[in-house]
């Protein structure tokens, strides 16, 4: 079953682009990564899902229900952590969390203390006095206190120190094991790589690719580095499937996707001094998506 289904979702801000024709779906129980550079449309997509803004065209469903029509109902089971957390002034952490809990028809007191303990959050402090990282912790507790079935995270780790980040990821994995589906938006690949099963890559408001992390990493891509005896002309390896071609003197490097034989044949026609063929890390694959259309 798909928890989130996005169907040709488009949002225009007047004439300027928000997102265009975004389609993907998130299956129940998976941790789905949503990556792209700043301004690519990640937050826009998430805000559309939460019906904070409304689509220009296209539609989306969560738990099989239209996000616009059934917004209040759907949100009972959604926990959301915004990229920047803003709260009402002059409230204590515990008051804010209780206020947040009051919107859900269940008792969350125990859960609040549990979460606060894990995240080392002082509930008696005033929110105004908290550091950015601690505000983020309030956001995390606030987003998880009602044990949502779908957790939506928009750049959740900014401001958290590595230790807390680790605790937070553990927390997410625990929720995931209990059955929660997670949509995780980020521009930091390593965290997505660590946590997610599948990933959608967004660039300039459009989805470039949806792929399994494992496939993205293993199957298709190879990183080549070739040292030749004589310097090669810059376009010697210019062929379909080759990306990020770089020639520096006798050293040539590129990322290749496709039938490996075609490259090997090409390699065999020059005299080589050394050869490396490696698995590219996600970052490098990712760069390939960003650069492709430039």
């Amino acid at each position: 079953m798909n928890v989130i289904e996005i169907n040709r979702l488009t949002k225009m801000y007047g004439k300027s682009r928000g997102i265009t024709d975004v389609s993907f779906s998130v299956e129940e129980g998976e941790i789905f990564g949503f990556i792209g550079p700043n301004g690519a449309g990640k937050s826009t997509t998430i805000r559309l899902l939460l019906s904070l803004i409304y689509p220009t065209s296209g539609s989306a469903t969560i738990f099989g229900k239209d996000v616009v029509k059934f917004a209040p109902e759907i949100k009972k089971e959604i926990g959301y952590l915004p990229s920047e957390v803003f709260y009402y002034d002059n409230m204590k952490v515990i008051d804010l969390l209780k206020y947040s809990a009051s919107f859900y028809k269940k008792d969350c007191t125990k859960r609040i203390t549990e979460l606060a303990e894990v995240m080392e959050l002082d509930l008696t402090k005033k929110i105004d006095d908290l550091s950015l990282g601690n505000k983020k912790k309030v956001g995390i507790v606030q987003g998880l206190l009602h044990e949502p079935k779908l957790i939506i995270l928009d750049e959740p780790t900014s401001g958290l120190d590595p230790l807390m980040q680790q605790r937070f990821f553990d927390l997410l994995e625990k929720e995931n094991q209990k059955g929660a589906t997670i949509l995780f938006s980020s521009h930091i690949l390593s965290e997505v790589q660590r946590l997610c099963d599948r990933v959608a890559i967004i660039k300039d408001g459009a989805i470039v690719q949806v792929e399994k992390i494992s496939e993205l990493k293993q199957n298709n891509y190879k990183k080549f580095k070739i040292e030749t005896v004589l310097p090669l002309s810059g376009d010697y390896f210019e062929m379909p499937g080759v990306n990020q071609l770089e020639v520096k003197g006798t050293t040539t490097s590129f990322i290749f996707r496709g039938d490996i034989n075609t490259v090997m044949q090409k390699v065999s026609t020059v005299e080589i001094a050394n050869l490396w063929v490696e698995e590219p890390d996600l970052e490098e694959i990712f760069m390939h998506f960003y650069q492709r259309e430039e």
């Binding site: 019906s51 904070l52 759907i74 949100k75 915004p82 920047e84 803003f86 009402y88 919107f103 859900y104």
Partner: peptide, 17 residues
């Protein structure tokens, strides 16, 4: 203004309410 819409309107409550 205070950017608290992301807090309030992601709660299970309609805008009318």
């Amino acid at each position: 203004l205070d950017k608290t819409v992301e807090f309030l309107l992601v709660k299970p409550i309609s805008r009318v309410k």
